[in-house]
Simulated assay, not measured.
Amino acid sequence: MTETDAPEPTPEQAALFARVRRMMLIAGLTTALAVAAVLVAIGYRLYRAGGSAPATHSTVTLPKGARIVSTAVAGARLVLTLDVGGAVEIRTFDAKTLKPTGRLTFATEP
């Protein structure tokens, strides 16, 4: 088998090859930067998560005759909906520390 010799590229072709190489270099560097950013974000989240929060034991007192209608978690908050003698009340607590963060009561207009 004989090998064919590739002819020397013309100046226009050489300029085109140089442009393509430059664009590929830019695309490769951009991809490497994006992959590095994703790895940094994953590492940051793993580092921040660290370990699990220590178990807490807490007793929250409710008004006499109150009953819990529903519970929900909203972000870093624990939300309790209470029925207190026929009136609806919403109490929020910090999910990690279980400290009260808010209280919302509802009343009807006279």
Results as ranks from 00 to 15, higher is better:
M1R: 09
M1A: 13
T2K: 15
T4Y: 12
D5C: 09
D5N: 13
A6N: 12
P7W: 03
E8C: 01
E8T: 13
P9S: 07
P9K: 05
P11M: 01
P11A: 13
E12I: 09
A15R: 15
A15Q: 15
L16V: 07
L16M: 06
F17A: 13
A18R: 12
R19I: 01
V20A: 13
R21T: 10
R22V: 05
A27F: 08
G28K: 09
L29R: 07
L29Y: 14
L29E: 13
T30W: 01
T30R: 02
T31R: 06
V35N: 02
A36I: 07
L39G: 14
V40Y: 06
A41N: 11
I42N: 13
G43S: 05
Y44W: 09
Y44A: 08
R45Y: 13
R45T: 06
A49H: 08
A49K: 09
S52I: 04
A53K: 11
A53W: 00
P54S: 06
H57V: 13
H57M: 05
V60K: 03
T61D: 12
L62K: 04
L62F: 02
K64W: 03
K64T: 11
G65I: 01
G65N: 09
A66S: 14
I68E: 01
I68M: 05
I68G: 03
I68W: 01
T71A: 06
T71F: 01
G75A: 11
G75K: 07
A76R: 13
R77S: 15
R77L: 09
L78P: 06
V79M: 06
L82P: 03
L82K: 04
D83N: 12
D83R: 05
D83Y: 03
V84A: 03
A87F: 02
A87N: 12
E89Y: 01
I90W: 00
I90E: 13
I90N: 07
R91W: 11
R91M: 06
T92L: 07
F93V: 02
F93C: 07
F93I: 03
K96S: 07
K96E: 04
L98Y: 12
L98Q: 06
L98G: 00
K99Y: 01
K99M: 06
P100W: 02
P100N: 04
T101G: 09
G102T: 08
G102C: 06
R103K: 11
L104W: 07
T105A: 10
F106P: 00
T108I: 09
T108L: 14
E109K: 14
E109Q: 14
